[in-house]
Design a protein around this nucleic acid. Structure first.
Length: 610
DNA sequence: CCCCCCCC
């Protein structure tokens, strides 16, 4: 095989990686052998790697890549591209921690040329020792360096002292730590050294699967971040000892796939604390463990993200509304909230709803810079943001993004032309929310959630079902239930368990509405039915029995008209069957000026995101 | 094992 056809190795990459771990490229290396270090629960492979100039015996294959070995993809002389790695210092003497071996953990490896094709060792690499210096025996042979004792790395001899999970402090030398980025569900002998960046309140739940309580915490180290959840016994055990901002050694938690839907924490996995989990406060120098990490999204880019995404955003709060008290529809509880207007140097503004204490305590008078971690993106009024219980709100944080924004705002940004991606509730005619076609609503599977979805559509009334459009309802103000005609001049309401001498007409209208993409059957109750037919239920009800021609005419005149419908879609149980039910929440005449302005705005946004 | 996060 002609070596010139192979990609050249990243000469000198290995000492650079071992030296400071900050090698910015994806090194091309050659495999010169491997050894299986049988772990307690897993095979673990140590790999001799070469950059053509130096070879190093302390490459370690992340266990989730063991299949590469099994598949024969890392045979001798294979050329690999190392797409992700981390350097981990391991104490060689657990008691003193003084001697450190540096391990290069290969987290993402792509075999580039099979060893059989390369067929030889490339170059004449010198062996580096475990500290990264050229080994004294200046190896010129191709034999791997002696394979040392790797048990420390496997963790079995270096687990933190177990104090039944509590522990007060830890001697630095007791503990060999692993980077967060190297954690996977396939290995469970690890200890991380992490700073807690957020801790939730204790929450209880009760559902068909049972009930219990839990809290969660977010944490990070130099390599990444991860969320952990503690249930029931572990919730009681750990809630009080864990404080935001402090550093802990954590080991023996379970790892499982993270559900990205609920967090902006950048990790494919999250921890669940178990009865074996240990959490030990760290009182060493913890200055190298960062305190929080944001992944800011410029406000202008929020328009291209999916609704319900959890994001990090930073901006200047230029104005705020008063605290409002609203009543939750689901819990009937009073909730306090404050809406604020936030801008950033993309000259874009977004509305942000701060719930509960966050809203009550917020003071916008100084127009502060606010950094948000884990805020929820809604599609109300175009796009808007809302805090959730796990959102971290930092006012005027000391970070470069904040200082830059302050500078931008104070030097002209505050008066620059800003376009808002949130429709203001005051300026509009009452209808915030996103606009969709029926085709889009279908594609997005709207209504397939526990909670109803809302959207607006411009559509035409195609057909109205006149049958059962009206019904005789209980005459009391509070009750609109159907009454039964007793045929003796009395009407019985089963709900009120009473008979009345009269009734009132109510409407429940089945209407077929259509846009350019699809047609859709929707239900209009009283108010929206009256708006659509242009007459009160009372008037229509009387005509029904007295003037059939007039009655029919009302329905004819209401068809083929265009409106803006605000629709509410939800899956509902009907005769033991799940059915998508679409109700008309609001029906409005089309304001063409407003409508066209919105279309133009949307076209511009589309063009910008091309 | 939660995953509710509320309003229009």
């Amino acid at each position: 095989m002609n070596r010139r056809n192979h990609p050249s190795l990243s000469c000198g990459a290995i000492p650079s990686i071992i030296g400071n771990g900050l090698y910015n490229e994806t090194p091309i290396l050659q495999v010169l052998g491997y050894k299986n270090l049988q772990g307690d629960n897993n095979d673990r492979y140590r790999i001799l790697i070469s950059d053509g100039k130096y070879s190093y015996a302390y490459g370690m294959l992340a266990t989730q890549l063991n299949h590469l070995i099994a598949d024969g993809k890392l045979e001798n002389f294979t050329i690999i591209r190392v797409k992700k790695f981390v350097v981990n210092k391991v104490a060689t003497k657990a008691t003193t921690g003084k001697e450190q071996k540096k391990i290069i953990i290969l987290l993402d490896v792509e075999p580039v040329v099979p060893g059989s094709e390369v067929g030889e060792k490339i170059g004449n690499p010198q062996t580096l020792n475990d500290g990264g210096e050229v080994a004294e025996e200046a190896a010129t042979n191709s034999k791997p360096a002696p394979l040392g004792n790797m048990n420390n790395y496997n963790g079995s001899k270096s687990a933190p002292v177990n104090n039944g999970g509590y522990g007060h402090s830890a001697e630095k030398s007791d503990i060999v730590t692993h980077p967060i980025v190297s954690l996977t569900p396939y290995q469970n002998k690890w200890t991380v050294k992490v700073r807690v960046t957020n801790k939730s309140d204790i929450r209880t739940w009760s559902n068909s699967r049972g009930e219990g309580k839990l809290f969660s915490l977010d944490m990070m180290d130099e390599t990444g971040e991860i969320r952990a959840t503690a249930f029931n016994a572990e919730c009681d055990k750990f809630y009080h000892m864990i404080e935001i901002g402090k550093v802990y050694y954590i080991s023996q938690a379970q790892l499982k796939a993270a559900n990205k839907q609920y967090t902006s924490i950048k990790n494919d996995y999250e921890m669940t604390f178990s009865q074996n989990t240990t959490v030990i406060a760290c009182h060493d120098d913890t200055s190298s463990i960062p305190s929080i990490q944001f992944n800011f999204v410029p406000i202008v880019q929020l328009t291209s993200l999916e609704k319900d995404s959890i994001v990090d955003v930073i901006g200047v709060v230029k104005s705020a509304n008063d605290v409002r008290v609203i009543v939750s529809k689901t819990t009937n509880k009073e909730l306090r909230m404050r809406e604020v207007q936030m801008v950033d140097s993309s000259n874009t503004e977004v509305n942000l709803t701060l719930w509960g204490k966050m809203g009550e305590e917020f003071d916008a008078s100084s127009q502060p810079v606010v950094a948000l971690k884990g805020v929820k993106l809604s599609d109300f009024g175009g796009r808007s943001l809302g805090t959730v219980s796990s959102t971290v709100v930092q006012i005027n944080p000391d970070m470069s993004e904040a200082h830059k924004l302050r500078g931008w705002f104070d030097n002209g940004g505050s008066s620059s032309a800003v376009s808002s991606i949130s429709t203001s509730r005051v300026a509009g005619t009452g209808g915030g929310g996103s606009y969709k076609t029926f085709g889009e609503a279908k594609l997005e599977n709207l209504g397939n959630n526990d909670k109803p979805d809302y959207y607006n559509v411009k559509a035409m009334v195609a057909m109205i079902n006149k049958e059962r459009a009206l019904y005789m309802a209980c005459p009391t103000d509070e009750c609109n239930k159907k009454v039964i005609d007793q045929n003796n001049g009395l009407y019985r309401c089963e709900k009120c368990q009473r008979e009345f001498q009269d009734f009132k007409w109510r409407m429940m209208l089945s209407v077929n509405i259509a846009d350019a993409t699809e047609q859709q059957w929707v239900t209009c109750f009283q108010e929206t039915a009256e708006a659509l037919l242009g007459k009160s239920a009372d008037v229509i009800g009387r005509l029904k029995d007295t003037d059939n021609n007039e009655f029919q005419k009302i329905f004819e005149e209401a068809t083929f008209k265009w409106y803006i419908f605000r629709l509410r879609v939800k899956m509902e149980m009907y005769n033991d069957e799940n059915r998508l039910k679409t109700n008309v929440y609001e029906v409005k005449e089309i304001n063409y000026k407003e409508h066209n302005e919105r279309l133009i705005r949307e076209m511009k946004e589309m063009a910008a995101s091309e």
